[in-house]
Amino acid sequence: MACSIYKSFRKLKKRGLAREERPYFKKHVIMLDDHLFSLDLERWEVSIATEHGRIRVKLLHGTYHEKFKDMKAGEAWIVRKKDEFYLNVCFSKNVELMEQNNKAIAVDINENNVAYGSTEGIENFKTKERAIRTAYFLKRRRIQLRLGSRGENLMKKYKERERKRIEDIYHKLADKIVEKARKEGATTIILERLTNIRKRIKYSKVMNGRLHRWSFRRLQRIIEYKAELMGLNVVYVNARGTSTLCPICGVKLSPNGHRVLRCPSCGLEEDRDVIAVRNLLLKLRDVGASSVHPEGPIREGMKFYVRPERIIGSN
């Protein structure tokens, strides 16, 4: 791990992106390969190999999920945070994806809301991500202006709070999308290919900050792994024109009020997010996109709390 951090630091320094003069560890971490530890989730114990033989450690405050029963434990990390120790474990599982049928769920991701659905119905989920991220950004900026470098720890605390709050929203939303696909018998989830979206759009300084705080790719990754864990196919299609073209006749739409678009040719009038979802469903049929199979098994993490004295011993 030290070599990996040092190599990463050298690359950043050559590009002029290193903030420090030398690399350093942010956390105290011990990495464990799968042959250095074994988990017993029934007894809530972990066996860890040391130079003096194996020791058995009782796990505390862990959350046991039934889905981990048929998964294989891979590598793990013992992480020290202040005076507490955590065992972060990576589980893996081989999943066979379903054969694609003509039913799919399309997902249109926006900065403040996400629309998803199929030909049977479209739903709109208000994430309020823009407001949350802006509020935390302004709070950190006030701390920086008032305290300077003395407020670094306080800024980190609010940054972590922001991350956890957004991650919770993302996971709840991903669960809703996967559940809708299962209820409707869909075998495919369609996502937008948003590569280089920040480079393609010409925006002001304020918009620049907003777009760089928006973690749309993180949401897509969560939806992707939750879908594949259930055997659903994930397809990425080109997002160009999905919010500006009519899904019926293909004519460019005109604004007709707040977030409402109207087709001058056929008279269609709908919310722009609903139109985007309908266009994404059409693109899957038109381009005949193939599903994105996971590279290797699906992985998921799990965190356990362990007794510190059993890890650090007399030292």
Rank of each mutant, 00 (worst) to 15 (best):
S290P: 05
T127D: 12
A73P: 13
K157N: 10
I55V: 15
K13T: 05
H28V: 08
H52A: 00
I48P: 04
S215G: 00
D273A: 05
R221W: 08
A115V: 05
N94W: 04
K7Q: 05
E167P: 03
I189T: 03
V287D: 12
K103W: 04
G231Y: 00
S118E: 09
H35F: 12
A2S: 10
C3Q: 15
L232T: 02
V46D: 03
R200Q: 12
R10F: 02
L281S: 00
R278A: 03
R43N: 10
L245F: 12
Y225Q: 08
G241W: 04
A181E: 04
T242C: 08
R54H: 00
N196I: 05
K67T: 04
L282Y: 07
K283S: 09
L191I: 06
K159H: 11
T63W: 01
P255H: 04
G16A: 09
R146Q: 14
P308I: 15
T195P: 01
R262E: 14
R80I: 02
A18I: 06
S204C: 00
I55M: 07
S149V: 08
R299T: 13
H52F: 01
D33T: 13
L41Q: 10
C90I: 15
V274L: 10
A49K: 15
N102A: 03
L36Y: 06
T244S: 15
N101P: 02
K303Y: 05
M155V: 12
R56P: 00
V237T: 14
R259H: 13
